[in-house]
Computed example of a mutant assay.
Amino acid sequence: MDHYEQQALRELQQWQIRMNKKPSLFNGLTKGLQNKVNNVIPDKIHEIMTSAIKNIVRAALLGSEFTTKKEVPSGLSLAERERLVRERLRFYKKAAATEGAATGAGGLFLGLADFPLLLTLKMKFLFEVAAIYGFDIKDYRERLYILHLFQLAFSSDARRREVYQKVLNWEATILEFPSLQAIDWRRFQQEYRDYIDLVKLLQLVPVVGAFIGAYANYHLLDNLGDTAMNGYRLRFLQQITITPK
């Protein structure tokens, strides 16, 4: 291993410790608050959010519109690949912040429009990252991996530990999914919504919505970037006979 790979491995191990942490008391209190928030959000908003998640994620996993057309040179080192990932992450964080500010300043209806737009940005980013690390995003199994990384980034503490074990033992996990139809869409939607509903609700507040939208979207992409990089480091380093545990 070169110096960069050694540093990446240390960062990966620190990330793995975070992924394995048990749910905290604060997490339980947050979940209770989330349930109360869900009860006061109008049913129409719930329907819009659920429909957006289902349609966009299915399109990403079953269609071709999210595949990247950019060619990534073969034989790149881990350092070179991650330089490209960081460049794309900076682009997507700025795009998400700009979009969040614009929709947050527009009141209820534009605020709701942010939900599918942000979800689309997240999916596009994950597809680009997978390609940069050298994985074939036309393979449905790689799209399943993208879906699991998405869940890992935006799930409760308890669910996160469960998904992390599936990511860690990926070769066994893919045997559970003979096709994309085996995905538990209902659970996937609810976990994602529970993770970001409170933030998206605050984004609908007049005056402060633009600031909240920009700040929240920027950091949601930052969290996704950290999860994606370490999720693919896990497999990339495994390919060169390093097996983190």
Results as ranks from 00 to 15, higher is better:
H3D: 14
H3W: 10
Y4P: 08
Q6A: 08
Q7E: 13
L9R: 02
Q14Y: 13
R18W: 14
K22G: 08
S24H: 00
L29Y: 03
T30Q: 07
K31Q: 14
N35Q: 11
K36F: 04
N38T: 05
P42F: 04
K44Q: 06
I45C: 00
H46N: 01
H46W: 03
H46P: 01
E47K: 15
I48K: 11
I48M: 10
M49A: 07
T50P: 00
T50A: 12
A52G: 06
K54P: 00
N55W: 06
I56V: 13
I56F: 11
V57P: 06
R58V: 13
A59W: 03
A59V: 04
A60K: 08
A60R: 11
L62W: 09
S64N: 14
K69N: 13
K69E: 14
K70H: 08
K70D: 13
K70F: 09
E71S: 11
S77E: 09
R81G: 10
R81W: 04
R81T: 10
R83K: 15
L84C: 03
L84V: 04
L89W: 05
R90G: 09
F91A: 13
F91M: 13
K93L: 09
T103L: 07
G107C: 03
L108C: 02
F109P: 04
F109K: 03
F115C: 00
L117Y: 07
L117G: 08
L117M: 12
T120W: 13
K122R: 11
K124L: 07
F125W: 03
F125Q: 04
F127A: 01
E128A: 03
I132Q: 06
I132N: 05
Y133M: 00
F135N: 01
F135Y: 12
D136G: 02
I137W: 00
I137F: 01
K138H: 12
L144T: 01
I146Q: 00
L147G: 01
H148P: 04
Q151R: 14
L152W: 03
S156Q: 06
R161Q: 15
Y164F: 15
Q165I: 03
K166C: 06
V167N: 07
V167F: 07
E171P: 10
E171S: 15
I174V: 15
I174L: 12
I174S: 07
E176L: 09
P178H: 08
S179K: 09
Q181W: 08
A182P: 04
I183Y: 02
D184C: 05
R187N: 15
F188D: 11
F188I: 11
Q189L: 12
Q190M: 12
E191L: 01
R193Y: 09
Y195Q: 12
L198C: 07
V199T: 14
L201G: 02
P206L: 08
V207G: 08
V207E: 08
V208M: 12
A210W: 06
I212G: 05
I212L: 10
A214Y: 04
Y215L: 11
Y215M: 05
A216C: 03
Y218K: 11
L220T: 06
L221S: 05
L221Q: 12
L221H: 07
N223F: 09
A228C: 03
M229F: 04
N230V: 04
G231T: 00
G231Y: 05
L234N: 02
R235P: 02
F236G: 02
L237M: 03
Q238Y: 10
Q238P: 00
K245F: 04
